[in-house]
Design a binder for these strands. Structure first.
Length: 321
RNA sequence: GCCUCGGUAGCUCAGUUGGUAGAGCAAGGGACUGAAAAUCCCUGUGUCGGUGGUUCAAGUCCACUCUGAGGCA
């Protein structure tokens, strides 16, 4: 088996929500003959359009978009690993067509699954997961202690209260017979594997106040565009509340309103707040990635054309190098 | 004009019989390997409305004063 000496190159655009990623990606795609691969954990769902800020057909301007509208909402098993498989296919197809793959999205882990050698070797096992979860609910300390004895490196990394990860780590150990940490404890090198692609990473960010203002405004615009009706349709379909899609920002808060738990005004305020929190977490995630070339888009309206010229040039250089 | 209740962190409020303040939310920082728009961790000095007084010691008691809400005239 001959492994590829030269990994394939891709361009990525990352950053917090409401930071012009969509616009930048489409404009860039037009200039470099690109296809867009969405790295977004909600845009993959059919019917979640307004709330996920999915670009409309008009906004896409004929640019091919991958990984949008892939699953019905009641798909229980969407995961990073599934994303990686599908995104890889999309990227490889794009390259075969002699186009430039532009990965754009705010789901940091999804992007990293393409640019770092992450393992994802052990699939989930619901039976084990449920069992450990039950034990955890009874005595978190005990479960954590077990992880500590079996996989101290991972235990040190995690907090006792981080239920999801503590359980996952034990799940991996039980399934694989070896600790999660042996699959690579950090993003730099997972058991010496090579990352799938070699990325040029652009990060978009803006003044925090400005960003929050944009988020608040965008939520109002979403409501005007019919988010309430979109959420109502999904609510009326009576999906299982535990589905990953059902917890998406912009929907879960309106579900609470439909349930009668809060007023519409409160729900909308909650969407804004949760989106702001989300943006902050996204920034924390991306900030530590030193490969990212950051661009300030606080003055987007005035500086967009020079920014796009700059990104186009760098992207072309990257792909031709 | 009189009476009552308030004025303490960005907001909502705690603060025991006086020992120079603390919760929730917000905000900021961080973690993150098959749920990631998820899950989780860390961070609280602020003219205690102002001025004076009593006291070894005042957010806490007293006087005056500014200010908000309500009530009575």
């Amino acid at each position: 088996m001959e492994t590829a000496v030269q990994r394939q190159r891709i361009v990525c655009i990352v950053g917090p929500t409401a930071c012009h990623k969509t616009e930048v990606s489409i404009e860039l795609a037009k200039r470099v003959n690109g296809e867009i691969v969405s790295a977004d954990s909600v845009q993959v769902y059919l019917g979640m359009d307004i709330g996920s800020a999915k670009p409309t057909i008009e906004e896409r301007q004929g640019i091919v978009h991958h990984l949008i509208d892939c699953f019905p909402i009641d798909t229980p098993e969407c995961s990073v690993s599934m994303f990686r498989t599908m995104a890889s296919e999309a990227i490889d197809g794009t390259i075969r067509r002699n186009h430039v793959p532009i990965v754009v999205g705010g789901s940091g882990l999804y992007v990293n699954s393409l640019t770092y050698p992450l393992g994802f070797a052990i699939p989930r096992d619901d039976e084990i997961r449920e069992r450990i979860s039950g034990e955890y609910d009874k005595d978190p300390g005990r479960v954590y202690a077990r992880l500590k004895s079996v996989d101290p490196r991972t235990a040190d990394r995690l907090h006792v209260n981080d239920k999801k990860r503590v359980i996952r780590a034990l799940e991996v150990f039980e399934c694989a017979g070896k600790p999660l940490s042996e699959y690579g404890g950090d993003f730099q090198n997972s058991a010496g594997e090579q990352p799938p692609y070699e990325p040029l990473l652009f990060g978009l960010n803006m003044d925090r106040e400005r960003l929050y203002g944009r988020i608040n405004l965008r939520v109002d615009l979403m409501m005007k565009a019919g988010l309430l009706e979109e959420a109502r349709r999904i609510y009326d379909a009576r999906y299982e509340k535990s589905l990953p899609a059902m917890r998406s920002i912009g929907y879960q808060q309106l579900f609470a309103y439909f349930d009668g738990t809060c007023s519409l005004e409160e729900a909308v305020e909650q969407i804004k707040l949760d989106t702001r929190h989300f943006a902050k977490r996204q920034l924390t995630w991306f900030k530590r990635d030193e490969r990212i070339r950051w661009h300030d888009v606080t003055n987007w309206d005035n500086e967009k054309s020079s920014l796009l010229n700059e990104l186009t040039k760098q992207a072309k250089d990257w792909m031709n190098a």
